[in-house]
Design a protein around this nucleic acid. Structure first.
Lengths: 174, 174
DNA sequence: TAGGTTTGTTTCAAACTTTAACCAAGCGTC
DNA sequence: GACGCTTGGTTAAAGTTTGAAACAAACCTA
């Protein structure tokens, strides 16, 4: 089959999208590095933990929520543990598992830095979008995410990395 | 001033957007690593070169086009040079400058892998969007990019890294 | 319940990014 | 024409990410 190249319109959209995501991620990383001493990804890990019951999640679940590989998470948690923002705890029920838990200090850092982060996102994105555009952005993003999550044609690192592999943790929750 | 938190709608949009960009970048990286043996960024560097007159660009200009730091580019070009896809050449007029030039082999790699790349982008994005949504995406992305490019409140690494610092190269072109 | 498989996590090496110097060449000026 | 500032590019060290093992616990199943 001959290649279905992008139309000029699609190309413009694609380039604009690439530029925007690139600049945005850079800006957020800079802001968080400055104010919280960590990159966006690490901030997201803390944020994910903060929303979990007991601020506590199995490594695998946390990796899934943060949409990163487990190995990357291991490194990140090790670092954040050194900083005192997270601590680990073994799982009683499943000896293979271990929890990552947001410490009080971690929560404090999050609370202290959240306003600045939100302000950055607002200034970069939502202050410039109409209500309709916010909805459009959600719709478009959801479609793309769904397409990628449900797609197995693109080979993933390992089978258990797949986002649609929804399993409740054997020993999560209180 | 009290923090202007995100509304639920904005939050949904933000999360969807983050998930989409993350999954998308991952998928593209995997596909290109598989088929072209390099990450998206490196592919982009080659692509930028391929569009330049004589497939040739000063390092600084290439960094600017690729929206990365010069140091990052130095590393990337060194790697791509090892692979034989790029070669360097000194600038006659300005002894400080050096060019990065896409070799024939580099061009061949690009031509061989472009269809697969486009197909990935299509399958992940444009196959699922209506014509209106493509326009919306471009509009939204452009707004965000413009906001970030014109914004100096977020401190950048160094002044000469700023995207709006448009200068024509002293010795570019033929 | 022994054997093989799956699951949860970590480890390791190689690749990549960042940050802060560093160096040399141009530029301005006194 | 020497001083200082800017520009183009690289380097070095520390930090991060990746991808492929390695490992141990849990789960089959015959």
């Amino acid at each position: 089959m001959t290649t279905r190249w992008l139309t000029p319109k699609e190309q413009r959209a694609w380039r604009a999208y690439m530029a925007a995501t690139h600049l945005l991620e850079d800006a957020i990383d800079r802001q968080l590095q400055q104010d919280a001493g960590m990159p966006h990804l690490y901030y997201g890990i803390l944020a994910n933990l903060s929303e979990a019951p007991e601020r506590k999640l199995r490594m695998t679940d946390l990796a899934e929520k943060s949409k990163i590989t487990r190995s990357r998470l291991t490194y990140a948690v090790t670092r954040l543990e050194k900083d005192g923002l997270i601590r680990r705890e073994d799982c009683q029920w499943d000896k293979r598992s271990s929890f990552a838990i947001l410490t009080d200090e971690g929560m404090a850092v999050l609370e202290r830095t959240a306003p600045g982060h939100v302000e950055t996102v607002r200034a970069a994105v939502f202050d410039h979008l109409s209500a309709e555009q916010v909805e459009q952005l959600e719709e478009i993003s959801s479609v793309i995410a769904r397409a990628l999550e449900g797609d197995e044609s693109t080979p993933r690192p390992t089978a258990d990395e797949l986002p649609w592999r929804r399993r409740s943790s054997p020993c999560s929750g209180s």
